[in-house]
Structure formats: structure tokens, C-alpha cells
Simulated scan of single mutants.
Amino acid sequence: MGESVVRVLSAGTALPGPAIDTGALARRFGMDRLWEQWVDAFIGTRTRHLAIDLESGRPRQSLADLGTAAAEEALARAGLSAQDVDVMVLGTATPDQLMPATVNVIADRLRIDDIPTFQLQSGCSGAVQTFEVASALLRTGRHRTALVLGGDVIAKHYDVTADLAALPPGELVNYVLFGDGAGAAVLSTLERPGAPELRAVATRLSGLDREPGQVLNWYGQADLKAGPAAPANEDYKAIEEWVPVLAEQAVDDLLDELGWEREEIGYLLPPQLSVAMTRRITERLELPGAVEVSRVGDTGNTGNALLFFQLENLLAEMTGPSRAIAVAVESSKWIRAGIALERPADGGRAAEHTPEGN
């Protein structure tokens, strides 16, 4: 008996508050028109959603709030209830607390209990890693339906009183790159006509002897007494250099495993650091027939949520037999990751490939 086939039944997402454009950020932080033009030219993100009130800095929604809303939407779209879930996995770099795990808070709100739950601490690749953990469990045949989630609330690290003009570039970029959000998807071995099959997942640590491209700090009382330190910092030059390289390697990992040709890919869900970076990455990947599925221009970089926003669009567009590849790169200690999906012809199964494509 072969392994069970895992299908992606649905995706759901949640964003906090109204969309905030770059002009609103500029006015709040006293930045001039030249700064707005710089953001437009070099970042390209038009709007983002923040889980804090921009005027007061007070939290409005937590990751658990957003994750619960996204999960409820995904389950409703799949035509399932929370009681149908056998496994839950959350990927995040910004849990609400170190303990209890945010995945378990979400489970409690959904009235889910007595199942395996996992929380993966990771940057943008955490969303892909949830697919790897969940699909491995589903393919054993012991579980049937998994709820996978990804999300981040970056804005809780913002100092809304900061003088952005005085910040070093590694801190300043966080104010314009990121937005907050959460997403969820339902994976299942249930038969579902039209649901794409999860054909492969690849995650690889790629950071040996490489300095972190991003650092996100947690503070204890002893840390605070030792003196102030930036909660978040990015080496954007290193990210610009290495993310396209690792994204290309992630695509090659998937194509080599499945024996697929570049010309056979119908949809590409590229890494979503910013609009400008996405454009560079997509050009490098050289998938000539692939339709790009991107959301970063409207949501900002929502970290582990972005894959689910892209999936939400993909599932609506993937109406005929086709293949899709999604890629994410974690830049803190450098992880390349990706998933391959295939929607077979109605009533059929995706063709099997050996690693050599025979």
C-alpha cells in the first residue's frame, strides 16, 4: 500500500485593521515626500495592515486573534468543522508569548482538544515547514485532516515615538517592509475533486558559516537591565544578495525531486520580501510559463502569513490541470523552502515521478 495522497482543500487569511499606505506612515513619523518616493522606488509596498494603533502604539489584535479568524475561514471554505481536525501546526517568528504556545491558544478558541499540536519557531520558511510536518503525519494514514497556520505580528516591536530619520537602515527598513497577518490551510487525505495535490515539500538549512540576515530579540528582566537593544534588525544587503540565490536553489530542489521541467510550471508563488525584491527573484527563477501569484504589494511582508495569502489566490485561479511551485526563504539563519502542487485532470491523479523523472 502506498502513502496517502495529501490535498490542499482550502486557505483562509486574516488582516488587522484598515490598510495603511506609505503616506500615512510618513505623516505619523514626520518623514518627507522624498522618503515616500524612496519607499515606492526601492520597496514598492503600497499598503500594509498593523496590529497596533499607529497613534498610540497600543495592541489591537494578537496573533491568536488573527490565527483563529484565518482558521475559521479556511475550515468553512473546506466544508469542515474544527472537530474534523486531527493535527494542528503553526509556523511563526512572533508568538504572542513564549508560553503557552500560540497554536494551543488558537486550538482552545476553536474548541479543539486531544490532538497533536506543534508550533515551529521560524521566519518566512515556517509556513512551508508546517506543510512538511503536517503532510508527513497525514501520509502515515494515522491522521486524515490537518490545519496548518502561519502568521506574524511584527508591529508590536514598533516604537511609534521613534525618529525614523535617526534610525540606522537595519532598523528603519522594518517600518516599511512589514505588515501583520495570519493565514491557514486545510490539508487532507479526503477525496476532493479539483483540490490540488501536495506533490513535494523541501526545506533545507542553508546557513553554515553565514551570519544572520535578520535578528529578532526577546527580552527578560536581566536583558533589560543590561541596557537597551533594538528588538529587530536586518542586514538588507545580505538579504538582497542571498534570497534570490536560495530561492533558485529551492526551485531546483523541487524540480529535481519531481522530474518536472521549468516550462511545465503554470504558477509561481515567489518569496515576498517586497515588491522590488519579488520582481528580481521572479526574473532569476526563469519559469517562462508561470503566472506570478503575489500579495506583498497590498499586505506588506507578513512573514509566515504570506504563503497563505498567495495560496488563497492560487486556489481561486487554479481551475484546470496545472502545476504550481511556492518558495519561501528564511533569512535569519538562512533556510530555503518550497512546496509543489499539482491539480490533476478531474477524476484523475497527478502523474507520479521518480526523482529522475522516469
Score class of each variant (00 low, 15 high):
1 M>K: 01
3 E>G: 12
12 G>R: 06
14 A>L: 04
17 G>L: 07
22 T>L: 11
22 T>C: 12
28 R>Q: 15
34 L>F: 11
37 Q>V: 03
44 G>E: 08
49 H>L: 13
58 R>C: 02
58 R>I: 00
59 P>E: 00
65 D>Y: 05
67 G>T: 00
68 T>L: 13
68 T>H: 14
70 A>H: 08
74 A>P: 03
75 L>N: 09
75 L>M: 05
76 A>M: 11
81 S>T: 15
81 S>Y: 03
82 A>F: 06
83 Q>R: 12
87 V>N: 00
87 V>H: 12
89 V>K: 04
91 G>N: 06
96 D>T: 01
98 L>G: 04
99 M>P: 09
99 M>S: 07
101 A>T: 10
104 N>S: 14
105 V>D: 14
107 A>H: 11
108 D>L: 15
109 R>L: 02
111 R>T: 09
111 R>V: 09
118 F>H: 13
121 Q>A: 12
122 S>K: 01
122 S>Q: 15
125 S>M: 10
131 F>A: 04
133 V>E: 05
143 H>Y: 15
145 T>N: 14
146 A>S: 07
147 L>I: 05
157 H>N: 10
165 A>N: 11
166 A>L: 05
169 P>K: 06
171 E>N: 12
173 V>D: 13
174 N>T: 11
185 A>I: 00
188 S>Y: 10
192 R>I: 04
192 R>C: 13
194 G>M: 04
195 A>M: 08
195 A>T: 07
196 P>S: 05
198 L>C: 09
198 L>R: 03
203 T>G: 01
215 V>R: 10
216 L>A: 08
219 Y>V: 02
223 D>A: 14
224 L>I: 06
231 P>R: 01
232 A>C: 04
232 A>F: 08
247 A>H: 11
250 A>D: 06
253 D>N: 08
254 L>K: 03
255 L>S: 09
256 D>I: 00
259 G>I: 02
262 R>A: 03
265 I>S: 00
265 I>Q: 10
273 L>Y: 15
275 V>I: 05
278 T>F: 07
281 I>P: 06
283 E>H: 12
284 R>M: 09
284 R>K: 15
288 P>I: 07
296 V>S: 04
297 G>F: 07
300 G>M: 05
301 N>Y: 07
303 G>I: 06
305 A>F: 08
307 L>H: 11
313 N>K: 13
316 A>G: 14
317 E>P: 03
320 G>V: 06
321 P>H: 00
324 A>I: 03
326 A>F: 00
332 S>L: 00
334 W>A: 06
334 W>I: 01
337 A>Q: 02
338 G>L: 00
340 A>P: 15
342 E>N: 06
346 D>L: 12
351 A>L: 13
354 T>Q: 05
354 T>W: 14
